[in-house]
Design a protein around this nucleic acid. Structure first.
Lengths: 204, 204
DNA sequence: GAATGAATTCAACGAGCGTTGAGATCTTTA
DNA sequence: TAAAGATCTCAACGCTCGTTGAATTCATTC
């Protein structure tokens, strides 16, 4: 910043750091935390292993930087809470499932789930971020006393569908269209968020 | 078997094999496939590492032997399909959730999920066993044309709840009672199995 | 053009892993 | 008692991993 105080090559030139980060994201998503190796990332990014450690430090810090939320919380929450309350379940289902139509979106989600299943530290980190950025605001927007439980139940159905469909590959979920599945779980999410929680699943 | 043909010590004495298997089950459940080490199992079982390999061969074969289905398919299916169809969802939820009340039952389930998330081979194996032993018979018992999709959707909700509750530890699911959660997801399972699939979740 | 310092590579470390083969121990049968 | 064979241990192998420190390259600034 100061015009005449520091000599030497300025950082941020080659974009290699970003390339490593991008490759790391893909590897974590495809392989999970344990099976992802710094060597594999480096080779795939066309870089020496040491450069990865040099930029990001220990593997856990790289993971922390490479594992963002699979979807932006703010626009999702805005859409959900501003629209009519009777269709909130359908809109949530459609939003999430449309995310899985691109390979990249699918990778983000499966990577998060895989990491949460294998890494205790990643699980806590993911839990905190998802709870803070998605579940709590959603619960607050719902307003009901057991809103946190409702939001968490809806989340559990979403996680379960992603897990069985994209990671385990259970049929016919794996080959069903996003539309079909959105139509199937939409009413359930609606029920969790606005229906009678411990009673029969009724909607007019 | 022949009375006078083979000399030497008869096998099946010390129960060490079973001890190893029992320890392996716990380790796979707690740590997942990758983080479980033969050395860790051996140390915990008070045995040399080589003995584990000697009994079970490669790690994957040990896993295959140590990771059974978390619940017996036959009695579950019998109970579900013989009872009144209108309460099948509640009974399924209660059965599964009662399984998680003991530490051992919980371990079986989390171990299966963790393994499926990390090991491609384990995922396929689990998918085939669960599909063959649980989903398909359940779908057949239901009789409707889209029964396989229904059974799979119900399974996805169960998996999602176990994952978020016991592995990720999302609140308030983690600290809610089995009764509360059974009451919450029972109607949803009922809807998946017998309700109007793509329509609103209605039950009289 | 010389100094500077970031970007990058090279080489090596120590540790942990799954797996293997040879050998010691000990119970059972002949 | 002697042979047999299953049970179990010891020691080592080859490999991969994450991480580190020194050396090299090179664009920028003085």
């Amino acid at each position: 910043m100061t015009p005449a105080s520091r000599a030497g090559r300025r950082p941020g030139d080659s974009g290699t750091r970003e390339a490593i980060l991008h490759t790391a994201r893909r590897h974590f998503a495809d392989l999970g935390y344990d099976r992802t190796t710094l060597r594999g990332i480096a080779a795939d990014a066309g870089v020496d292993v040491a450069l990865v450690s040099h930029y990001f430090g220990p593997k856990q810090r790289l993971f922390a930087e490479a594992a963002p939320l699979p979807l932006e919380p703010e626009p999702l929450l805005a859409d959900l809470l501003e629209g009519p309350r009777e269709t909130i379940g359908h809109r949530l289902a459609a939003r999430v499932l449309s995310q899985t139509e691109t390979a990249e979106g699918q990778q983000k989600i499966t990577g998060l789930i895989r990491a949460a299943a294998s890494e205790e530290l990643a699980a806590r980190q993911i839990r905190e971020r998802v709870t803070e950025a998605l579940l709590l605001p959603l619960a607050e927007g719902l307003g009901s006393p057991d809103a946190r439980l409702r939001a968490a139940l809806a989340g559990s159905q979403i996680v379960g569908l992603m897990m069985t469909r994209h990671i385990v590959g259970v049929e016919p979920l794996a080959t069903s269209s996003a539309q079909t599945l959105a139509a199937a779980i939409g009413p359930v999410l609606q029920h969790y968020l606005t229906g009678p929680l411990a009673g029969p699943v009724t909607t007019p």
